[in-house]
Amino acid sequence: MSTRVEKPRSAEVDRAIRLRLYQLMVELRDFEQRAYELFLENLVRGTSHLALGQEAIAAGYAVAMRADDYTFCTYRGHGHTLARGASMAAAMAELLGRGNGMLHGKGGSMHLTDVSHGAMGSYAIVGAHLPIAAGAAWSAQARKSGQVAVCFFGDGTTNIGAFHEALNLAVVWKLPVVFVCENNQYMEYTPIRSVTAVEHPAADRASAYGLEPILVDGNDADVMYGTALRTIGKARDGGGPSLVEAVTYRHGGHSRADPATYRPEAEVREWLSRDPVKRYRERLLAAGVGEAELSEIDARAQQKVDAATEEARQGAPARVDEIERQVWSDGGSAWRN
């Protein structure tokens, strides 16, 4: 099957937006790097799934979204949540299990959510959030609000039933939803190509739902931004859903427990050379943005992460009186009289 690969259309992206894309990618990169360092200090408990190397997808879409659009993401969702404007300190504190965490310690790394910024949740069961995102899009359609739901998921999700159920429903109901497959090429520890019937796990399935196959370079922020504008615009204009496959690579393992030794060294080297942050920095320099301006962005991002880390570390442990709160809308957990 022939699948069209989108070419960068960088000329269409103006300078302010490009600097915003760069800034966001650097912030997400630095946040994830810091989260990793805090594991090593044993301050981040439980598991954590870093999106190092996948920043261009989160940044490209977030910058193209309207403030009231909805983001649905996976357990690898720190970046997507932060990209919508959620507090970095609250996210870091949640990773540290602190009372000042985004979810007061009740969700953890895999469930970062900030509804006030349209970050409608990080979902830790593969595939679950695709139908849920379709539901948010259905609500937007019913309320005629003009909102769009964007749903990010990994390549492994394309082999689970909920992916197919959600796509079919979204097309049949012509819902304003964009499904974005972040194909980082490994389903946990297994190469996706070895367990999938088609070469491009999302794009090659698009035609089964009457959708255009969209295969893009997920490590190119300009491409991602352009793709986001086009697919979100189509959804907002009543054109229905899109399915995007953004090819990328995670720089680390699946989760903190995974040293990722199953990946050939040459492959890792090759992909590190396509690091979306470095690559975009070089592109901006070549386009005439000054080194000083970029270094200033770099320094500010570091400061932001430092401040967030400090605020998180200052937080008291999660409050034990939270345990029985917020099962129900009355704020409690009573199940009997």
Binding site: Y70, H129, L130, A134, G135, A136
Partner: peptide, 9 residues
């Protein structure tokens, strides 16, 4: 899933 996404929005 659709009911949930709709209910939360």
């Amino acid at each position: 899933g659709a009911a949930m996404g709709a209910a939360m929005t």
